[in-house]
């Protein structure tokens, strides 16, 4: 019995299959990462879990409650931090928390105490009487996370929690997420398109693309699936990917801009042979390097495309600014 059970869940918009037959179990106490590019179906999946969208087909249960038939129970079991901000800017931090506590019918005494605790946890207790309007992006996020936890949810959903934030604030928020997973034993589902975020935080990762889960495992095991090393070669002129593919020890060749990524075992010892093969094909080596596979490579391996973090980052930042 998982805290989240998803069976053949689909959501179709006109002719787009945003979520296409996903089945997934998440255990209590996990930090589960949903990793995928923009438009992969992460947010649609989350919206169905928190009862904002009805599934086209399939079922999903949160804490044993069906997301269509037992909405109210599901909503009580969930804390949600949306991708876009959802605070009332004309209220203070404490008033936002207060409002949430009332909406979830937390008795007054508990409410006061818990609000105090949580604001302390996210280091906003000295800002509690200040209008949210004046908060920075990072402060808003922290407040939203604290608010999501107010009613002791079994599961906290964080949809792109660090989007548009600077690296320092991002690390800060990771610390908070890890802390509350330990302290409150809250199951956490986090969607992201930042590799390092998923790598750093998650106990398990589901890679989602075109509405389907295409890989599901711990970050470590996912990386182990790409046995061996990654050798990155930059070549002057000419197409040498075919020549390299013919080498018996090379498992896979992927082209990334002007660079080639080779997947093979014992990378260091193979470098001379690779250089020879390239020169034989009439090209010159500009640079060559060996490294351990990162989650990014895993993603590339399964989806055949890069996450394009930087571009996505810029795009999201604009979008984020617009929402302000």
């Amino acid at each position: 019995m998982g805290i989240i059970e998803i069976n053949g869940l689909s959501k179709h918009f006109k002719n787009v299959k945003a979520v296409d037959g996903i089945s997934l179990n998440i255990d209590e106490g996990e930090i589960f990462g949903l990793l995928g590019p923009n438009g992969a179906g992460k947010t649609t999946l989350i919206s169905m879990l928190c009862t904002l969208l009805d599934p086209t087909s399939g079922t999903a249960a949160v804490n044993g409650f069906d997301v269509v038939k037992q909405r109210s129970e599901v909503r009580n079991s969930l804390g949600v931090v949306f991708q876009d901000p959802s605070l009332d800017e004309d209220l203070t931090a404490e008033e936002n928390m207060e409002m949430h506590g009332r909406l979830y019918k937390i008795p007054k005494k508990d409410r006061k105490e818990r609000i105090g605790q949580l604001l302390k946890l996210v280091e906003l207790e000295d800002k509690k009487d200040i209008l949210v309007k004046t908060f920075s992006g990072g402060m808003r996020r922290r407040l939203e996370i604290a608010r999501g936890l107010l009613h002791h949810p079994k599961v906290l959903i964080l949809d792109e929690p660090t989007i548009g934030l600077d690296p320092q604030t991002r690390r800060h928020i990771w610390t908070h997420i890890r802390q509350l997973n330990e302290k409150e034993n809250t199951t956490i589902i986090i969607t992201t398109h930042y590799m390092e975020e998923a790598d750093e935080l998650c106990s398990r990762i589901g890679i989602i693309d075109n509405g389907k889960i295409i890989a599901l495992d711990t970050p470590k095991k996912l990386k182990e699936r790409l046995k061996g090393d990654i050798v990155t070669v930059e070549v002057g002129k000419g197409d040498v990917s075919k020549a390299l593919q013919r080498l018996p020890f090379v498992k896979d060749v992927k082209k990334e801009d002007s660079k080639l990524q080779l997947q093979l075992e014992n990378g260091e010892t193979r470098i001379p042979e690779i250089v020879k093969a390239i020169e034989k094909a009439g090209a010159t080596v500009l640079s060559i390097g060996v490294r351990q596979p990162a989650l990014e490579d895993v993603f590339l391996h399964f989806t055949g495309k890069e996450l394009r973090t930087e571009k996505a980052n810029l795009f999201e930042k604009h979008r984020f600014m617009r929402m302000r």
Binding site: N76, S86, D88, E89, L103
Partner: peptide
Amino acid sequence: RRFGFLKEMLVAPI
């Protein structure tokens, strides 16, 4: 809806 507070109300158990 613009500032997102509508979502906060919509996912609340009301």
